[in-house]
Nucleic acid binder design. Structure first.
Lengths: 215, 215
DNA sequence: TTCACGCTGTGACAAAATTCACAGCTAGGA
DNA sequence: TCCTAGCTGTGAATTTTGTCACAGCGTGAA
């Protein structure tokens, strides 16, 4: 089984390769990709082992071929179909970003239980009522959903999504969801991340000051 | 030095404890906190070692005292002062969320280089022009900033922030930032997280189908 | 055609993170 | 008062993750 961290890095390589290709680069060495991704060359090579793509000692990796291999590994040549639950300010921001087509994420349906929002179309995406979640998703191939509801509702929404056959959840609410072992949850807790950054920021500030004083 | 993962969990415990206290609970055992945080009891105890708080074998941890210890460890009793750069749709969403006072994050200033936005006040936060970043931040105690600009501008913005004395950056742009070793970067790449969740979602779906077939 | 350089792929090793497992303690009951 | 159940705190073992180092290979130069 391939680890979560490896998958994170591989998706990152994908993004970076797209950028490199856009700049006209056709070949790339492990150390170059490593620099872009801020990892070690050995890490890059180790990661690429898992997708089976093999480079050339003299010319390195072929950007296009490597992208193809990654695509095949992730099996999302036609974009990643997702659903969004919770059309608050964060939900709207995500809709407007992903519906602009700047990435390979496709939001096929949005859900909210506010009657003032349901039925409307935002950024080109129709907003369905929560109680139609199962039926609406049944018509799609969605297996991954974004949860942007308040913390208090997140578990309820999650249960509904799991019931509708969703196996991947990106949770923006500051709670830990309870899911069966066949469901993957990625927590994107903004508050928690800021607190973490603030902690290290303070540490580094102090350290920097100390060093300045010692001189 | 205490690890990044430990800090993440500790901030999580803080959130959970706030919730428990709101529900009137005064004492808590490691296995209960562990259940809430979806980690093992040993992990909880191990984590609490680093903040020096010590519980009681018979009554467990005292919710209030533990919160105080955490607060003291993170040293943010008055809230975390931050700045936000990039008032696009994501920036606005974060502003409206954090200015509502639902967490201990305080956004003291926002920045954008769109003249149509600068000077205005959004969700109670004034938007300053980018070229006044250094002067504006000099008047505050901000050491941590949220970067919500498009990928192409993120590095430039980061350099400006670092120049202004910021030591912690929460980066929402899908690029890896280059910073000196005295600056901590937390990447919150939504696209990458969705791709990761989608990958595991697909894996789990397949596995579930397989198992159903075998029966 | 042959050689040599500098890369890749990977087994072995090192470091980091997590879990195990148990000594030691503490409040409540007998 | 003393005993006991069941917790905490922590050294040691285990598992996971990342790095090292080198054999082997492909290309361009001679």
């Amino acid at each position: 089984m391939v680890s979560e961290k490896t998958i994170s890095r591989l998706t990152n390589y994908q993004t970076l390769l797209r950028l490199q290709q856009a700049q006209g680069r056709t070949h790339l060495f492990s150390h170059q990709l490593a620099d872009l991704a801020r990892v070690t060359p050995a890490q890059v090579r180790r990661d690429l082992m898992v997708i089976g793509y093999t480079g050339n000692p003299r010319t390195g990796y072929h950007v296009g071929d490597l992208q193809d291999s990654l695509m095949q590994f992730f099996a999302f040549s036609t974009g990643i179909p997702t659903a969004l639950v919770g059309v608050g300010s964060l939900g709207r921001a995500l809709l407007s970003y992903f519906m602009s087509g700047r990435s390979n994420i496709r939001i096929l349906a949005a859900f909210d239980n506010d009657p003032g929002k349901t039925g409307r179309v935002l950024s080109g995406c129709r907003i369905h009522p929560m109680n139609r979640l199962r039926e609406t998703l049944a018509e799609t191939t969605v297996s991954c959903a974004l949860v942007t509801v308040p913390g208090g509702e997140a578990q309820k929404v999650t249960d509904a999504l799991v019931g509708a056959g969703v196996h991947g959840i990106v949770n923006f609410a500051p709670v830990r969801l309870k899911v069966p072992p066949t469901v993957f949850v990625e927590n994107l807790d903004v508050t928690s991340s800021i607190e973490k950054a603030a902690f290290f920021a303070r540490n580094y500030s102090l350290k920097t000051q100390e060093e300045t004083n010692h001189e």
